[in-house]
Amino acid sequence: MAANAVTIKNSDHFFPTQKQAQKYYSGIVKELYDTEHTLTNGQDFEDLEWIYTSYCGYTDDKLDLLKDTDITGFKGVKTISQNSGQYIATECCVVVFSNGTEEEFSVDKAVKEIANHQKV
C-alpha cells in the first residue's frame, strides 16, 4: 500500500507521506501545549486553519459554527482518550472561535481525512 502524500494547499507545504504531515503538525500542537501559548497568526496558524476548515468540509462537521464565527486561535491541551481499553493522555489541538467557544480536534484525524481526499 502506497503512502499518501499531503499538500497543505494554502501554503503549498508538501509532505511525502501522511505520517510526516501528522508528525509535523502534532509537533506544533505539542509545542503550544508545552508553552501554554495560543497561536493567533502566522503560517502555522494559517495551516491549522486550513486543515481544520478542510476537515470540517470533508466531514460536514461544525460547518454551521464556521459560518457564524471566525477562528481566532489554536492552542494545545492535554486530553484523555481510550485506545484498546486503555486510557492515554495526549496533546490535542483546540480551535478558539471569535464567539468564545472552543472545540477540540485531532490534527492526526484531520490530516488523514485530507490525505484520503488528495489521493490520485
Rank of each mutant, 00 (worst) to 15 (best):
K19W: 10
D47Y: 08
D44L: 05
T40H: 02
T35K: 15
W50C: 00
Q22Y: 09
T53C: 02
I28H: 06
D44S: 07
D34C: 12
L39R: 09
T40K: 11
D47P: 00
Q43V: 15
T17M: 06
D44Q: 08
K19Q: 08
H37D: 12
N41G: 06
L32E: 04
Q22R: 13
L32S: 06
T38A: 08
Q20I: 10
S26L: 11
K30Q: 07
L39C: 08
E46T: 05
Y24H: 12
I51F: 02
S26K: 08
G27L: 03
I28A: 08
K19H: 09
H37M: 05
T53W: 01
Y25G: 03
E36W: 11
Y24P: 00
Y24F: 15
T40V: 13
E31Q: 11
H37A: 10
K19E: 12
F45D: 03
K23F: 10
S26G: 06
I51S: 02
K30M: 00
T38Y: 02
T40G: 07
V29C: 02
T53I: 05
E36C: 10
Q43I: 15
V29D: 00
Y33N: 15
T53M: 05
Y52A: 01
H37T: 15
D34S: 14
Y25C: 07
Q22P: 00
E36I: 10
T17R: 07
Q43L: 09
K23R: 11
Y52S: 01
T40L: 05
D34T: 14
Q18A: 11
Q20E: 14
T40N: 05
D34L: 14
E31T: 13
W50A: 05
W50K: 04
E36N: 15
S26F: 09
T35Q: 12
I28S: 02
W50R: 02
H37N: 14
G27K: 03
L48Q: 01
T17D: 09
T35L: 14
T35Y: 12
T17V: 10
E36D: 15
K19I: 13
L39P: 03
H37V: 11
G42Q: 01
G27Q: 00
G27F: 06
Y52K: 03
Q22L: 05
Q43Y: 05
E31D: 11
Q20C: 01
T35S: 15
V29P: 00
Y52L: 13
I28M: 07
E49L: 12
N41C: 07
D47G: 10
T40D: 01
L48S: 01
Q43G: 04
T40A: 01
Y33L: 14
Q20D: 10
T17S: 14
T17Y: 11
K23L: 12
G27W: 02
L32C: 10
G42N: 06
G27S: 04
Q18C: 15
K19T: 11
W50T: 04
D47F: 13
